[in-house]
Design a protein around this nucleic acid. Structure first.
Length: 292
DNA sequence: TACCAGGAACGGG
DNA sequence: CCCGTTCATGGT
């Protein structure tokens, strides 16, 4: 087993980052989903950064982030958890406003994750009309039912399924995992990716064009496409318009409501400073969802 | 029991 | 393009 230590640069909160509803691909080693954590709480995820499936385990103690893995995982950990993001510089690009100031102040150290693109795509297809805890449960079951087993620290975990593994799943088998009407969406999208249309191919394209391209996948509308761009592909300007943000627009930014998704999202994006608007959106989302 | 959850596909106007 | 309806499922 390989292991290492990362000296954290700037505010970082592991629990906040992986449990704030951005990613459904991390789980707590003790099996608990939510609740207080301490310096012994460890989170796991899987990756294929080196081609072969690998398990990664992390633990935060103050300014230190410790990792253990079947591979040399430091680059993966840095990218997946947004450790190289300069939170202060990002915040300075967001125009001051009562709500954004309050949200940033209330949750110091929350970073934007970078989920593996296919896993991010599937998990946000699953997110439609579903609560955070259940989306998380679906991804756990997808791993355990279809993913490749990986031995790590005396236990067997399962990597997130590949496009081929999910494309080979029957709709009935996916429904047994309580995916509901999302089952055929996941299966059909997995088949598209397995056939060679990979979500990461939109990298480098202009943001709105990238979003439209992602909506070609089954079960992917503009909101889910925005989540994939923001939480997987590093488009930090992406502003997903979910039910919480729509309510925020109604109360705090009514002039940004342009009657349709694309124009409203663009107006709010510009209001939140453009380049890192997705960061501000994520703070606002989490702040409101936790009763702020 | 009725309502809701980080929506999307579909059909009709 | 815009709108209403339908779609599973489990928790409250």
């Amino acid at each position: 087993m390989e292991h290492g230590h990362i000296q954290l640069d700037g505010p970082f909160d592991l629990r906040l980052t992986v449990e704030s509803g951005q990613s459904y691909l991390w789980w707590r080693e003790d099996g608990a989903t939510y609740g207080s954590t301490d310096e012994t709480t460890r989170y796991l995820t899987t990756t294929r950064a080196t081609g072969e499936p690998a398990v990664v385990r992390v633990r935060q103690d103050g300014d230190s982030l410790y990792w253990e893995s079947t591979i040399d995982a430091e680059p993966v950990v840095r990218r997946r958890l947004g450790l190289d993001d300069d939170l202060q510089a990002i915040r300075e690009t967001v125009p001051a406003g009562e709500l954004v100031e309050e949200a940033f102040d209330a949750h110091p150290g929350m970073r934007i994750v970078r989920d593996p693109p296919f896993a991010g795509l599937v998990s946000f297809i699953c997110s439609a009309q579903m609560r955070v805890a259940r989306i998380h449960g679906m991804q756990q079951r997808l791993r355990e039912s279809f993913g490749t087993p990986v031995s790590f620290d005396g236990e067997t975990h399962h990597a997130y399924p590949t496009p081929d593994q999910l494309a080979g799943a029957s709709e009935a088998a996916l429904r047994e995992l309580s995916l509901g009407y999302r089952a055929p969406y996941v299966r059909d999208t997995a088949e598209m990716v397995a056939d060679g249309t990979r979500p990461e191919e939109v990298r480098g394209r202009p943001y709105e064009q990238a979003r439209e391209t992602l909506t070609r996948y089954v079960g992917v509308g503009q909101k889910v496409a925005d989540c994939v761009l923001l939480f997987s592909l590093g488009y930090l300007q992406a502003v997903p318009l979910d039910t919480w943000i729509r309510q925020t627009i109604e109360e705090y930014y009514p002039d940004c409501d342009r009657g349709n998704y694309a124009d409203t999202s663009r107006a709010l994006r510009e209001r939140l400073g453009g380049e890192y608007a997705g960061y501000a959106q994520t703070y606002i989302f989490y702040h409101l969802r936790t009763g702020g």
